[in-house]
């Protein structure tokens, strides 16, 4: 078989696989929808405000409830303690907010 044919076939197979993935993500989500509604139910009942992503500190567990100072504990220039604190910061808009 010609090399170009092999390349075109491999590329097409890859592209088809990607499209199947994307379509699968769009349509096959019965299970996901169930999980989502279970979570949404808990959020509504318990009046939760945050996702449980990082549990090590209160400002990573509840980033939307935390105040600007808390990630730095006492001083805004103090070194961050938790690795996830580098990924998650309190939202910037709090700084200018009322």
């Amino acid at each position: 078989m010609r090399k170009s044919t092999v390349f075109v076939l491999v590329t097409a197979a890859n592209a088809i696989l990607l499209s199947i993935f994307l379509l699968h993500g769009k349509y096959d989500r019965g299970e996901a929808a169930a999980a989502r509604s279970a979570s949404a139910e808990i959020v509504r009942k318990l009046r939760l405000t945050d996702l449980c992503l990082f549990t090590e500190a209160r400002y990573t567990r509840h980033p939307s409830m935390t105040d600007f100072q808390s990630p730095f504990q006492d001083h805004p220039l103090a070194l961050e303690h938790f690795p996830s604190g580098a990924l998650v910061t309190p939202p910037g808009f709090r700084r200018e907010g009322p």
Binding site: F21, A32, F54, L87
Partner: peptide, 16 residues
Amino acid sequence: ALKGWAVLYPRFRLVP
């Protein structure tokens, strides 16, 4: 990387 120092790490499957 995401786990950081947490002991309790939530396991969830993201919806595509």
